[in-house]
């Protein structure tokens, strides 16, 4: 009996399954559309499934993530396009990408790639920028300085007038750098320059003065330059330079007794009177004259031409003049 019961039960179960499966089939066909859509969604983000035959390995303990503060967006994003740039960038400073609201790019790339942007671009930092000297900034600063300006003194309108009234030029240098000390050894140097034509000399004094100052005098520009840097302070150096100038000037007017012994080799310029040229010219002109007669002196023009030839150096003009004078003096008729 029981066996029959179980058999029936089994059969009924079978039937039950069959009906279920049938319904399921029917269901499937009916829900096909829905399922298709679902399936499509699944497929959207479905990767290839991995056939994992072995048991899944033990999950690796996740590493502790280092927490980093999120990088804030660059400051330039918040800048208004009509801001006061001189306030945003008041002084000289090397380039900073977040503070400059310009989509700059710099760098050479191969064909087909964009140039590196301004972020983390060291090249942009190497360039000395003028962001603090934009035209509005310059205008602003000029306006600010204006109140401290005084009118230009009358009578000094041109460079020549300045030079005329203030012939001595003093040059000093101030150094500005970021160091613990504010002093620079070069700041004590004082350069005093002066046109020599501003000073009044006689022939002897000028010669002596030039010998005293030596190479401080530039013959081409006629400028005397005295550089003083032997004292530690600028003031001292300035005083010393002016003292030197004054002392040399006054010393040059003193004639020492030993100066009389100056020989021809010491002469700074060639003098016809003191040289052999005069003797030989005289000898030629007074050839066959008796001793007592008045001597004919060589002409002034000849003397001048010889001096010019030697003092100014030789050139075609000087030598032609010399030739002319010699021919005149020696009474040789000139070819035409």
């Amino acid at each position: 009996m029981s066996a029959n019961l179980t058999r029936w039960l089994e059969r009924s179960l079978h039937n039950c399954h069959a009906t279920q499966s049938r319904t399921a089939l029917r269901l499937f066909s009916g829900q096909q559309q829905q399922q298709q859509q679902q399936q499509q969604e699944v497929e959207e983000d479905e990767e290839f499934r991995v056939l994992n035959l072995r048991a899944v390995k033990k999950q690796v303990a996740a590493r502790r993530e280092i927490k980093r503060d999120p990088v804030p967006p660059p400051r330039s994003n918040r800048m208004a396009v009509d801001q006061d740039w001189t306030a945003a960038w008041p002084g000289p400073r090397s380039f900073h990408p977040a503070s400059v609201p310009l989509p700059l790019r710099q760098g050479y790339t191969e064909r087909g790639a964009a140039a590196p942007s301004k972020f983390a671009n060291a090249e942009l930092m190497k360039i000395p920028n003028f962001l603090h000297l934009t035209p509005p900034a310059i205008r602003q600063q000029c306006e600010a300085i204006k109140q401290f300006c005084t009118p230009w003194p009358k009578g000094l309108e041109t460079e020549e007038k300045c030079k005329h009234h203030f012939p001595v030029e003093v040059v000093t240098t101030d150094f500005c750098h970021s160091l613990p000390t504010i002093r620079n050894p070069e700041a004590r140097r004082v350069t005093v320059s002066l046109k020599l034509s501003e000073l009044k000399f006689d022939a002897h004094a000028k010669d002596k003065f030039l010998r005293l100052v030596g190479e401080r005098y530039n013959q081409e520009t006629d400028v005397l330059t005295i550089v003083a840097d032997r004292c530690p302070m600028r003031k001292q150096n300035y005083d010393y330079a002016l003292y030197l100038l004054t002392a040399c000037y006054h010393e040059s007017f003193i004639t020492e007794p030993w100066e009389e012994t100056k020989s021809e080799a010491d002469m700074e310029v060639y003098h016809f009177e003191r040289n052999k040229a005069k003797l030989s010219a005289e000898a030629i002109l007074n050839w066959n004259e008796a001793a007592g007669e008045t001597k004919v002196a060589p002409s002034q023009g000849y003397a001048k031409s010889v001096e010019q030839l030697i003092n100014e150096g030789e050139n075609e003009y000087n030598i032609a003049k010399y030739k002319k004078e010699v021919l005149k003096m020696l009474n040789i008729p000139v070819a035409n």
């Binding site: 700059l104 790019r105 050479y108 140039a115 942009l124 360039i127």
Partner: peptide
């Protein structure tokens, strides 16, 4: 303006800083 603000002395003009429209920058 860029050449005034960033006076670069690099020889190759393409290597100097520039601000160009993205159409030109990106190939």
């Amino acid at each position: 303006a860029i050449s005034y603000l960033f006076p670069s002395g690099l020889f190759d003009k393409r290597a100097r800083p520039a601000m160009k429209s993205p159409d030109e920058v990106f190939p």
